[in-house]
């Protein structure tokens, strides 16, 4: 039931509205996963990032989308917690470890085991507007546990201009996105993270070059 509400909300409300407001400009659409399990690694500048990804994803994949979101932000009150898990299907992630033995990746790992598509923002926070922050190794650790699951890097542009951190007024700029080829875990966490960071950089250049 919860799943059905979510699919209807995403397909009939979020997708048309976000497509209308921000457009659907994307390069490498064919690399987007149609079925799970898969990990999407995207840059993060705005609350719109998740919604824009939902608008770009193939309709078939909508039911499988599980964005990983900061527990301290999205689950700060019972209401926001209920809303974000019902309507967006978020997987809460503790940014600060509460106990030493708790597994921070348990949530995303369980979702992958169920064949879902996990969205991770490896920069960890929205950071400075329209700037690519440092890629943290969380994605690599998750990919290491699921070496057969493809990781799909996506770079998005202008959403940090449309709704930057700390602002509540949305000014619609055209969103732009570029998707890179899916890759699987390479065997080394550091190397994988560095490669991901390099790919993100390439995608950023690609998005910016497309307009000039």
């Amino acid at each position: 039931m919860k799943r059905l509400i979510r699919i209807i909300f995403l397909a009939c409300c979020v997708r048309p509205l976000v497509s209308l407001l921000l457009g659907r400009c994307i390069k490498g659409r064919e690399h987007l996963p149609v079925s799970g399990p898969a990990i999407i690694a995207a840059n993060h500048n705005s609350h719109l990032d998740i919604l824009y990804l939902i608008a770009l994803m193939p309709l078939k994949a909508l039911a499988l989308l599980r964005p990983v979101a900061a527990a301290d932000y999205f689950c700060s009150t019972p209401i926001t917690s209920w809303l974000s898990s019902t309507f967006l299907g978020i997987i809460p992630l503790e940014r600060k470890r509460s106990s030493f033995h708790a597994d921070p990746l348990a949530g995303p790992a369980a979702a992958l085991e169920q064949g879902e598509i996990v969205i991770i923002f490896p920069e960890g926070s929205r950071g400075k507007p329209e700037e690519l922050g440092q890629i943290k190794p969380g994605v690599a650790h998750l990919a290491k546990r699921f070496p057969a699951v493809p990781v799909v890097p996506i770079f998005m542009r202008n959403l940090g201009k449309s709704l930057p951190r700390g602002s509540f007024v949305l000014v619609p700029f055209c969103g732009k996105a570029a998707v890179a080829e899916p890759r699987c875990f390479s065997g080394d966490t550091k190397l994988f993270t560095a490669e991901l960071a390099a790919t993100m950089q390439q995608l950023e250049d690609q998005v910016d070059a497309a307009s000039s």
């Binding site: 202008n158 007024v169 619609p172």
Partner: peptide, 22 residues
């Protein structure tokens, strides 16, 4: 309008004014 303001280099301080164009 959306396309035009995306092309332009706008300042963060312009957001308030740009919003009212819509």
């Amino acid at each position: 309008l959306r396309e035009f303001i995306t092309l332009l280099e706008t300042r963060p301080a312009d957001r308030g004014a740009l919003f009212w164009l819509f």
